[in-house]
Design a protein around this nucleic acid. Structure first.
Lengths: 204, 204
DNA sequence: TAAATTATTTAACACTGTTAGACAAAAGTA
DNA sequence: TACTTTTGTCTAACAGTGTTAAATAATTTA
């Protein structure tokens, strides 16, 4: 009889219900607030039932991570397919990546280990002790700008910071890249940005 | 009598002992393993004592964050002071930043919200569904390289990724930068890297 | 209808951060 | 010295966490 099938479908359904419930809780209250009992509440069961479907909480997070990567892949492929020229394809893919990160912020945080701890550090630190305070002066001077808080300085500072921090994060979370490649990216990027600063300053 | 002073010094000492104990636990077992009771064990007290010195666990983390920023500032200033030329100063500061991130990994994670969740995602995903798999083909083609796993392609991919991911992380953790500045950094960086790919390919 | 299997829950364990109340030690005062 | 007050410290507890074993309810099989 086909009742076996029906039951199997139902079980498959609660499997996805668990993931959906987890995702919904995280969207509303953040990753820190996700608990097995809350998931159980949402799917109208008690907590131990979840262990019939997933080995533990980590397994749920892993499944959501996978789902996130599949979503991201779909977005990037779609963006790519809309262009013929290689350069445009690459740009479109990274813009798709960028948009995914903010539209599916919870997935992105899980996939790439971006924690949101404290928010405003600047006010709690002595003046002149943030990385910005320390670096912006030299950047401004090299650009021939007197005010270190000028938007153009700010932009260049964040350009430096983004690539350095991005490369660091990737290395801390996944130790995939070799030291060789890291050094090359880091020095290339820094000297590249610096050169562009100098050229801009000379052009004016 | 000066015993007031002595007692005050002792209290100040346990305040730093608490921070030191916390840092040591994190170095040994990671942030996830840090608990008030473990800190108490390490300083040979019971847990409630800690609340005489810090309002709660978050306050301890905040204090460690501050300490991390002071350490980083010292490193960057020291690096800067060793050079006369502006460009060299900037490069030295970012290299100091880079080194700090790995030598004081625990501090860096706390300061900039870098979580270390799961490690090897690639093997758990269907082939061709990682961002690398999707983007590397176009990058390789644009560089005139047939193998998408070539080290030169890998380097360029990570350059793209670092700046995009870095900028995303900074925006998720601290919402300081404006959308204007973000867009400019993002498109500038992407088109910049792409242009350098094209030039390299043409030069060969 | 009785037995076997499956689904679900209750109760518990060992943790977590945090607080209130009890207890002991020291200091101040007469 | 004896008494009171303050200070330091701990025990016990609460509500929450992930997780497991055992008991119960529901369903299917014989």
């Amino acid at each position: 009889m086909g009742s076996k099938e029906r039951i199997h479908r139902l079980k498959e359904q609660t499997r996805v219900n668990i993931l959906d419930a987890a995702h919904e809780i995280v969207k509303d209250e953040g990753w820190q607030a996700l608990s097995m009992r809350k998931i159980a509440d949402k799917i109208e069961y008690t907590a131990p039932i979840i262990y019939e479907y997933y080995a533990n909480k980590e397994a749920i997070l892993l499944e959501l991570t996978k789902k996130g990567f599949m979503l991201l892949a779909a977005r990037m492929n779609e963006a790519k397919s809309k262009h013929k020229e290689l350069g445009d394809q690459i740009e479109a893919m990274w813009l798709a990546y960028w948009n995914f990160a903010f539209e599916q912020k919870e997935y992105y945080q899980l996939m790439f280990g971006v924690e949101v701890n404290c928010c405003i550090m600047d006010e709690l630190l002595p003046a002149g002790s943030t990385p910005y305070d320390i670096a912006a002066g030299a950047i401004a001077e090299l650009m021939g700008i007197s005010d270190p808080d000028d938007d153009r300085v700010c932009t260049k500072y964040y350009t430096y910071w983004s690539i350095v921090h991005g490369l660091i994060s990737i290395n801390i979370v996944r130790k995939g890249t070799s030291d060789e490649i890291n050094r090359q990216i880091l020095t290339d990027a820094i000297t590249g940005i610096t050169r562009s600063l100098k050229n801009q300053a000379q052009a004016e």
